[in-house]
Design a binder for these strands. Structure first.
Lengths: 223, 223
DNA sequence: CCAAAAGTGTTGATGATACACCCATGT
DNA sequence: ACATGGGTGTATCATCAACACTTTTGG
């Protein structure tokens, strides 16, 4: 059977919360096309490899990161998106805890975190892919327990709230947020430990619980 | 540059509401592999064609249907999903109004509607793809105006409610549903016309309005 | 008149927001 | 003592489920 040959790649929108910014992992391209421009990390899918496996492998290669969460985002296959040949890319979204710096991996020694608000003029159609990934992350925080993927294995309610505030760019009431998340059964698993902090009352430490969905959802509407 | 060659296809989960069932469009395979089994309609992406364009073209070829809504669903690319060669398929979800029957198209003269509850043992990994499409449709009815895509250009509130009841498999209160949808600004656009009906008070006819999102959402939870 | 389906009003429960207030720690 | 941030109580407001009720047609 004759069929048109395509190259298939995976690209990764890797997001984290650093300080006051939602950041994406970008690599500087070392070859044409788009030489010198920033791009999302990614690479070819191997002949015997599933799409999810390819995404996991690329993420491990580009960064030594703990992966909080990895899911398929969408596929992009405009005929002219790569000037060399016909390429369809299956983009994936990864949410990871804040790491000191992405450890230099094999593919991309110069991978670095860039606030998504400043990530512009990326190679290929990666502006669009990044925007879709950010929008997906914002939407999913509303009704899933995904925000915990941005935190380390143990975290306080205030750290979790910080994630929501940074991703949504909106202040939340600490009191109501606390009641909401501690009142959702299965969301948070108290460790019994507390943190020593710089100048306030110590906070309870939690691990993420078994709940995946948030019911009822947290809303980001202005109202 | 060397890269592993892949075939890329689009597959379509085409859903409609017929009577008391949510139905999917299936075609009987006329060749190996999976000869004689049911499958989702689909085909190869052409060399100069976008993914969305390929989905639109296939949908037009397989059916002469009015397309209420078409969106990308997900991609599937397990190495062994097609025994002949490495194929990655980009599945799309289409919601269409109830049509008397899919008109025999070029590719699939025997395309037909099958209730999703009875669609089993499909070719390739299409059981999984269909299940993902149905779940996506169910979820999106909650917070978008997508249900109108299942209706014709003009419809009554009761017809729209019927869509929700069939897709969710759950009875809704007619009074509360009516208030909810007519009270959401931009969702429904009254035509001023009414229907003549079999034995009750005539209903107002509506067209779908400009609103895409439902705020607040309609919930399908049991509570 | 009666049946059937459209559409309205009202009520009690539930959840969200806003904010006053108390608790535990470092300096 | 007091600043800082963690955590609780409570009033007000919006929304929802439930259901009695009225309206408009066909037989």
């Amino acid at each position: 059977m004759a069929f048109p040959p395509f190259a298939v790649t995976v690209d990764l929108v890797v997001l984290t919360v650093r300080g006051d910014d939602l950041c994406a992992l970008l690599v500087r391209r070392g070859e044409e096309p788009f030489l010198g421009r920033d791009a999302l990390p990614g690479g070819f899918v191997r002949p015997d490899e599933d799409l999810a496996a390819a995404a996991t492998r690329e993420l491990a290669e580009e960064t030594g990161l703990d992966v909080g969460h990895l899911e398929q985002l969408a596929s992009y296959g405009a005929p002219d998106r790569d000037p060399r040949q016909r390429v369809v890319t299956v983009a994936h979204l990864a949410l990871v805890p804040d790491q000191p710096a992405p450890t230099a991996g094999t593919d991309a020694a110069d991978a670095r975190w860039v606030p998504v608000a400043q990530a512009r003029e990326l190679a290929f159609d990666h502006d669009r892919v990044l925007a879709d990934g950010v929008e997906r992350a914002r939407a999913k925080l509303e009704y899933t327990a995904l925000a915990t993927a941005f935190c380390g294995p143990e975290f306080t309610v205030a750290q979790l709230r910080r994630v929501y505030e940074v991703v949504w760019g909106r202040a939340l009431d600490p009191r109501n947020f606390h009641r909401k998340v501690t009142g959702t059964p299965g969301l948070l698993d108290p460790t019994g430990e507390t943190t020593t902090r710089d100048g306030g009352r110590p906070a309870q430490l939690y691990r993420r619980g078994p709940a995946e969905q948030l019911h009822p959802p947290l809303l980001r509407a202005d109202t």
